[in-house]
Amino acid sequence: MGLLTNLVDHLKAIGTGLKYLIPRRLTLMYPEYVEKLPEGYRGYLRYDNEKCIHCSLCARICPANAIKMYRGGDKKLRPGINYTRCIFCGFCADICPTGALEYTTIQDIAYEKLEDQVYPPEKFAKGVPQPVYPEKPIFIIAKVDEERGLKYDRV
């Protein structure tokens, strides 16, 4: 009996292998295809100089010491960020009482130099860095699919 079930199990394993020979791929071909992340994804931070009330809560809560306060010419404190340290926990944006810090859905930024990743307040306020792709990517949205696991719909 053992021998027979063994043989059946062998055949079942090979059969499952054959069954999966029909391509149904889970891989997302980045960077040809880029996932458009949903609102609320904790990506790079946007800093709005106008809304900032110089309370330094963001620097105090930052678990990675990535956000530091800089004293500007007007003696007021403004946050700057060091993305080499940032762990994207989003605590700073969540504690910011005025929405001066907000997270964006941008996440895939490459830098040439480590120093480029340090954003003093002026640079920080200029806006979020934009990702660069080798060619124009096709943006997709990932969704759970009953048959394939994840399915990628074009935006």
């Binding site: 330094s56 620097a59 105090r60 930052c62 010491n65 956000i67 530091k68 306060m69 800089y70 004293r71 700057g80 003093p120």
Partner: peptide
């Protein structure tokens, strides 16, 4: 007694 360096919030 083993102290590690702590950073402040100022740059």
């Amino acid at each position: 007694s083993f102290k590690i360096k702590e950073e402040g919030i100022m740059a």
